[in-house]
Design a protein around this nucleic acid. Structure first.
Length: 194
DNA sequence: TGAGGGATGGCCT
DNA sequence: GGCCATCCCTCAC
């Protein structure tokens, strides 16, 4: 598998979002590797996007990473209890990102079931399996991502994304839970596979 | 299988 | 002080 390079992330956010589908996120914490496949994403297109944290040019300690170089991890706390994992896109100074909304476990499922439920895979019920990593907060918990990883360069060896040359069938839809964003709430900037 | 509502705390004004 | 890029449990059906 080939690690994605800086050029991949420095493109138009909608293109990066779609191209991330089917790619593999690798998290290497020295002891073991966790690998997941990206199945659902949302694009947040910067200062003109009412749903984006940097809308209107907002630049705060939280959003600082988005203003930096593409290919870095933007991770923040949501609803006081969960984390969301985003990847910064576009040229530096154009603060956009792609939110990873859903993944599918590929390698080291046992570590992920432990992170998520403190159980082995065979101990999970059908509800837990169905809802394992199909949400931004859920996948962060399963992989083990939190604020320690905010700002991490995805060209590093700890956390990165790989191309496994998978062909995917891309579908599009409205983004979720951004009702406050007025007309931007209707943009079809959510992408998913199957 | 889906809707409804409570939990929960950092962030920003 | 209000908002929020969520999750999970409960309870009908």
């Amino acid at each position: 598998m080939k690690k994605l390079c800086r050029d991949f992330y420095e493109r138009d956010t909608l293109e990066v979002a779609k191209d991330l589908l089917g790619k593999y996120i690798v998290y290497d914490n020295m002891e073991e590797q966790i690998i997941v496949k990206i199945t659902e994403v949302e694009a947040y297109k910067g200062v003109d996007d009412k749903a984006c944290h940097t809308y209107g040019g907002r630049r705060t300690p939280r959003t600082e990473v988005m203003w930096g170089q593409a290919g870095h991890a933007y991770i923040y706390i949501i609803y006081g209890m969960y984390y969301c994992f985003n990847i910064v896109t576009e040229k530096e100074g154009n603060p956009c990102a792609v939110l990873i909304r859903g993944v599918e476990p590929i390698e080291n499922i046992s570590k992920m079931t432990y992170n998520r439920y403190n159980r082995t895979y065979s101990e999970l019920n059908r509800y837990q399996i169905k809802n394992f990593t199909n949400g931004p907060g859920k996948l962060c918990k399963a992989i083990g991502l939190d604020l320690r990883h905010n700002g991490l360069d995805l060209l590093s060896d700890k956390l990165y994304v790989c191309d496994n040359n998978e062909i995917v069938n891309i579908k599009e839809a409205k983004r979720i839970n951004i009702d406050y964003a007025e007309e931007a709430a209707d943009y079809l900037w959510r992408f998913y596979i199957e």
